[in-house]
């Protein structure tokens, strides 16, 4: 289980953009490194991240080994009604994880 810190305002103004801030505990092992015995350390990165609001896509990102360990991401969203913002991501082990936050639009 990967730890995720998702920071979203609980309440936003309708149609006004707000920041979605995300930290994911993940080594983002690049696949370029070798261990003490000289063996390649297999790649293990978060490769895809999608943010949706209810069913609509807000933001999507393909990640590569050049994204730093414990990925940090800020992007912007805007909504017209209250609903649920969810972040879904997939890593090289096929682990899919979803984090959600309720956002109220006023």
């Amino acid at each position: 289980m990967v730890r995720v810190l998702l920071n979203v305002p609980k309440q936003v103004r309708k149609g006004e953009p707000f920041d979605v801030k995300l930290l994911i505990s993940h080594p983002m092992e690049s696949g370029q490194r070798r261990d003490a015995m000289g063996l390649a350390i297999p790649r293990d990165i978060v490769r895809r991240l999608v943010c949706t609001f209810d069913t609509e896509e807000v933001f999507g990102m393909d990640l590569f080994p050049a994204i730093a360990a414990n990925p940090f991401l800020v992007f912007s969203a805007q909504i017209e009604r209250s609903g649920t913002l969810s972040i879904m991501f997939t890593d090289d082990h096929g682990v899919v994880q979803t984090e959600t936050a309720a956002v109220e639009a006023v």
Binding site: R3, L5, N7, K21, L23, S25, N70
Partner: peptide, 12 residues
């Protein structure tokens, strides 16, 4: 605090 990766450990 929302961008400080140390907080991943703090929450742990």
């Amino acid at each position: 605090d929302g961008g400080n990766p140390g907080f991943l450990w703090v929450r742990e």
